[in-house]
Nucleic acid binder design. Structure first.
Lengths: 209, 209, 209, 209
DNA sequence: TATGAATGAGAATTCATTCAT
DNA sequence: GATGAATGAATTCTCATTCAT
């Protein structure tokens, strides 16, 4: 699968991936134009459909490519022996922020893809979301003894997750308006939120960093 | 603005609104076809573009119509003299659930619209989101004395909001998969979450209902 | 059905029908290009697909139009009270020859359509063929007493039909090569064939004309 | 000509011929896709166009190949010393039926090719049709003394030919509808028709088999 | 005011053929 | 000789919008 495409040189492949992700991120699946994609990179219409048999396959390829890229980095760099929930989550946040600086197009694409409503790719998206979004591993083998006594930990973790997710959305939304995310500021806000949450749910104040 | 459209009879207006919302909800802004919209209701091509000068204006009209509809109901029915945050929020949840049962098309439209990625309507959407989503009034004149002493109330409220929002997303996402939201179950889960949150952030256990 | 198209002026309608039939006759269903059709007549791409929702519907319309045209003329002008098989068939041949001179494009189209192998329109073609080709009425209430005694009349009629059909094919095939059918000559040959067949199958030599 | 292709091993050649015939038979000349042909057999794009300089040459090759195959068999197996027209024709029918069972793909291809409307190959087709269909040899040195006295034998032979052709068409058309030709039944019907024709045109009833 | 026929740019995709390796 | 990636013209069809009636 994708045999033809994978035979291309890295530069060419990346140019195509970049152009396609940019277009999909900007216009959504349905709105994106394969014509525009090939305009943005030195490739013929025939070639695009030689690499990917149709628009949907191209989209799915990009999605899987991006997810793998991100997951690989997380798997590699998150220390899963760290049993303090906040410390573990913080590692992930740091990596994500770094990646979104290194691969802004890819991140914008993934965010847009996850919100895409197009029926044509809904099923593919759902499959990927459930497999990734709430990556079980992230909450595996957490040290529950750090939580306050009598606390409903499952619910607490959900509240923590929703809060971090909410903050991320807020930051990313403000970015759409003001055009650029200040990642330094984002990290500070995330740390402050985690500080608040650990004070709320943990037995005693810990040291995040 | 929309003078021509407003001169129509209520039935006609609602038929058009319904058909348009259904199409936009199903296919997104870009994917929706004005041709399909008029097929679904007794109106001519010319008239549609007479009432709304283009597709975008139609979309924006629908959005504002829906928001107003919902906000009016909330304004009317939420008792803003209730100063207990959870009790006030609960009222809103009840109303939203009731409305989404009464006007399913409208709700589906609003949900889809809020996720729409189309560049053409992004700005309009952002304007409405910020003005509505975190409706200030909702958190005005809240009885802060109910919160635990020393609690960072602003942050607590955000966490509460993000959690309720997170639960709502979770329910609505599972609905896309399993086809139907069980509103009774949704209310139970919301109540349980609020119970947990009030125990976490409030001085003493209250009675929600 | 075909409401939009039927609202056009006769001239415009005929121009479109003509251009389309010419293209289909020349290239077959699959080979015919809707682009070429609109090039050949003052009509926009959008309009063609406004009149006929797709290529297939256009083809089917043309086919039904042509068949109706021909059948109406035959019904009107063939004297079905003539009970002598050859005399009745001769009437039809005369009409067909006349029509193919008056509407050469239409006839070329029908002939080509009947030979078309494209899967997309096979079913539609089969439906029309069975209903028309061996028009039962043509052989209804024939005077069987004219045939030789002891003759298997059913088989004789088939042989007559196949022979006339064979001659027609021969003439029409030679036309593809030499470019034009000589209808006078064709009529003579048909008469000669019928003379031979009547001598073969009839009790006594009749007078065809 | 076709030097390169003929250098291939028999198996390879036949695989290519088979795949190409199948595609042409199913979709017609214009509709057939060279891409699809190579998908169905182990051959590269470049090679196909190396063996046959273009689609048309491939088609013509297949046509000539099929015709030669069939004609060779007929030449070999028909006993041309048999001077009774019906007996000679019957031999041919038997061979054709046998061949169409042995090489169904080839026969389907030939039938489809003969009906093809594509301008690109019309001329080539016409050339082959006239050269083959009414293979003179078939009617050479026929024993005319068997025909009734005074009979216009030339015309009689034509009627016989057209009738046999007509029956064949009828059988083959019904096959398109009902999916399979019953060759046993076809042979019976052909024999019955020939019996009828020999009674009609021959001096005295002969014995066909 | 209301209509809906007309439009042509643009959509995704397929195609036979070429040519550098 | 054999390959298969690359091509761009051509395909059918859709679309939001206009404008004469």
């Amino acid at each position: 699968m994708y045999t033809n495409f994978n035979k291309l040189s890295k530069e060419r492949r990346e140019a195509i991936i970049n152009a396609a992700m940019t277009e999909f991120a900007a216009k959504g699946y349905k709105g994106a134009s394969t014509n525009k994609i090939i305009e943005g990179v030195d490739i013929s219409k025939g070639s695009l459909f030689h690499y990917f048999k149709n628009k949907k396959q191209l989209f799915v390829y990009l999605l899987d490519f991006a997810i793998e890229q991100i997951m690989t980095e997380i798997e590699l760099r998150v220390d899963f022996s760290e049993r303090d929930l906040f410390k573990r989550v913080r590692q992930m946040a740091v990596i994500e922020i770094e990646l979104s600086q290194r691969y802004p197009t890819m991140f914008r694409f993934v965010e847009a893809a996850y919100l895409d409503q197009s029926v044509e790719v809904m099923i593919e998206l759902e499959e990927r979301k459930t497999s990734v979004l709430f990556s079980k591993k992230l909450f595996d083998d957490i040290d529950l003894s750090l939580f306050k006594e009598g606390m409903d930990v499952t619910r607490a973790i959900k509240v923590i997750w929703w809060s971090l997710d909410g903050l991320a959305r807020e930051i990313s939304k403000s970015a759409t308006n003001n055009r650029r995310i200040d990642y330094g500021q984002a990290m500070i806000e995330t740390d402050e939120l985690m500080q608040f949450l650990s004070e709320t749910f943990y037995r005693e104040r810990g040291q995040l960093t």
